[in-house]
Design a protein around this nucleic acid. Sequence first.
DNA 1: ACAAAAGTGTTCGGCGTACACCCATGG
DNA 2: CCATGGGTGTACGCCGAACACTTTTGT
Lengths: 238, 238
Amino acid sequence: MHPETRFDNYFKSAFTVDSVIFGFDEGALKILLIRRSEAPFDDYWALPGYFVRQDEDLDEAAQRTLRETTGLENVYLEQLQTFGSPGRHDFGRVITVAYYSLVKIADFTPRADGLSRDVRWHDLSALPDLAFDHNEIVGTATEKLKRSIRTRPVGFELLPPEFTLTDLQHLYEAIWETRLEKRNFRKKILSMQLLVDLERMQEGVAHRPARLYRFDEQRYQELTQEGFNFELREGKSR
Amino acid sequence: MHPETRFDNYFKSAFTVDSVIFGFDEGALKILLIRRSEAPFDDYWALPGYFVRQDEDLDEAAQRTLRETTGLENVYLEQLQTFGSPGRHDFGRVITVAYYSLVKIADFTPRADGLSRDVRWHDLSALPDLAFDHNEIVGTATEKLKRSIRTRPVGFELLPPEFTLTDLQHLYEAIWETRLEKRNFRKKILSMQLLVDLERMQEGVAHRPARLYRFDEQRYQELTQEGFNFELREGKSR
DNA sequence: ACAAAAGTGTTCGGCGTACACCCATGG
DNA sequence: CCATGGGTGTACGCCGAACACTTTTGT
């Protein structure tokens, strides 16, 4: 370690990582929360996360703490923002590096762990009071999601492997909290060459069955690189 | 402080803030760097920044350290990303929260201070080896700048109060490292209603003098809120 | 048959694209 | 009078906007 002591005063902080995990189900956006099992905020709902170890990379810590609190593994986590108000933690100076991700709800079975009493998907539109400044973090993440879905093919991670155009439209509508015009949405999304027609149909629905699609992995990578511009004015019909 | 000791191990880290300050001059993008005056990396060029105090907010710390290393005050700093590899600092675990900003070079006169031997604008295209992982941080900031200029009226902060359309075009060309077609650039930028025609002309240039413009503060705020989409294909003529 | 979504055709206007040519000033 | 940028006019094509009507399934 360093030979000098004049920096010692600075080495008294801790940092944590917290993850905002978005999912999509039943036409609504969800967030994965844990119920804390230790002070402070014992028993409160909170974002999955914990302290970062001394020799641990931030990205790794995010993966590990997500696993240890919810059981989720191999989730692609992207750094969101760092929150560090002096008063945000009772035990001392703790700043948190927030991550976020989009996952298919069906792909994972969250389970509580030593660090959490409970894990559950919550409707984004009806969140309880969360521990620390986690409500603020969720707000920031939601803003970012709204913006990034306009420039990147985001639906990919939120929808099941096979989906209908209406599913995809509902996803956009849920994130943007708006209604889109069906015809124009379809024309736009199809013109991007991002979807592959599976040439199969929905089954067991009480109406004309919809065509099933999947994302074209190749094209998805391209568009993620270049970025695109997905904008549609609000529409009445759905 | 907290009554329990089992968290003590975590409270041994330090964190810093570092700022990437972009400027624009002579048709080229610049970055403000300081020369360090203490170990580690004594005498190396580095981003302006320093340790965050125990009871200090991150945003405040960014402002303060920027002032104390370069003399710049009242700069609008936006959080960029946090860098925290375990090995990035010799003295122990130090993570840094990076900020970035765009400023008019003429508005400030950087001066070295106790924490810096020297302060200077460097051409982004010819940076030296910087201290720590600061080259990586600059790279991340540059990527972000390229992307955000496509969705927000960014030139505002980089250009002098009065400028010509060609100045503005050169700015976009410098950031994107491309050439744009003059006619189309002008039509697009004028159609946004973002510029105010000052009805005055350049003076003392050895060619037809260009019309001077300024940004419309009002409209700038609007567009920053909504976001827009500025995209133009590469063009040959300038 | 009827409900409930799925799915399509078309017109209109705006805006990005790609050009070549004229204008004003200093030297 | 010429070099050096500044500053247009415009035809074309594509794509987003705004419509209403037909098709296919389960009940």
